[in-house]
């Protein structure tokens, strides 16, 4: 047998690219040819050693760096004027039209429609479960993105993080805690306001409600104090009364804010 042919055959066998019949043919060939058998045995042990090589897990730092890079790139991309994006879109559309070879596309379409007609029910099930898998994968990535963005030094990026957090159907505790931390500690008022708006979407979650109530005494800015007061009225949250009273006792508040809070307490009672 030609050396090259044997080399290819061995790699097919080792990498599992042979079907059952070919495997049997290969093994019989080795049994019948002692010299090749010896060569193969040596390689097999190297192959096994190679596969035993261990790789450590990458650290969390790698994820943080990646999502920081991605958020910077996204921010830059958002600044591109709309007409340039439109131009890019049209150019890409034209490219893909030419590449897709229309005739071939039409053939696939007809074939797809025919198959679709016959396998309609089955396909629907597959689509539904595929959709679910895709949604959960997207959710995980979005969570990572939100958590990374909320830790960024730039207020714009933190705002972007809050806006990403609005896109969840159902929010995870990790994200809720990150939003509450932003609401209580972020140095920028706009980011804190955006965090309230984002949390409002998830007020059915007890953790969110509790977090909002606890946040009342931590707010220094009049606009946030008033926003929280209005929100508690809307939610008719009785647990908020005591924190509001404490806020009025312990902090020097703006007169308008005091009036607003007093009105809110009356409405809630």
């Amino acid at each position: 047998m030609d050396t090259t042919q044997f080399e290819i055959w061995v790699m097919d066998y080792l990498s599992g690219e042979l079907d059952e019949a070919s495997i049997q043919r290969f093994e019989k060939f080795l049994t019948d040819n002692e010299e090749y058998q010896k060569q193969f045995d040596v390689l097999l042990s190297s192959w096994e050693q190679l596969n035993a090589l261990e790789v450590p897990e990458p650290s969390e730092k790698m994820d943080t760096q990646f999502f920081e890079m991605l958020s910077n790139a996204t921010e830059k991309n958002d600044k591109i004027p709309w007409y340039k994006k439109l131009q890019m879109g049209i150019r890409q559309g034209m490219d893909s039209l030419v590449q897709s070879k229309l005739a071939y596309g039409a053939l696939v379409l007809i074939l797809g429609l025919t198959l679709g007609y016959f396998f309609r029910n089955g396909a629907t099930e597959v689509d539904a479960s595929s959709e679910m898998a895709s949604t959960s994968e997207t959710k995980q990535v979005r969570e990572k993105l939100v958590l990374t963005l909320l830790e960024q030094p730039s207020a714009n990026q933190r705002l972007q993080g809050v806006s990403e957090a609005n896109k969840f159907e159902k929010v995870d505790d990790k994200v809720v805690n990150a939003l509450l931390k932003t609401l209580n500690n972020d140095p920028n008022v706009n980011v804190r306001l955006a965090a309230i708006e984002s949390l409002i979407k998830y007020v059915d979650n007890p953790l969110v409600r509790e977090g909002l109530v606890q946040s009342i005494v931590k707010q220094e800015s009049p606009i946030l104090q008033v926003t929280l007061a209005n929100l508690m009225v809307a939610l008719q949250e009785k647990k908020s009364i005591e924190p509001f009273r404490k806020l009025m006792r312990t902090k020097e508040l703006d007169t308008t804010v005091i009036q607003q809070i007093e009105r809110s307490i009356e409405t809630i009672i």
Partner: peptide, 13 residues
């Protein structure tokens, strides 16, 4: 490629 850069997060994962 079409500008939805956040999708790169999925490929990264």
């Amino acid at each position: 490629k079409s500008g939805d850069l956040n999708t790169l997060g999925l490929l990264y994962e």
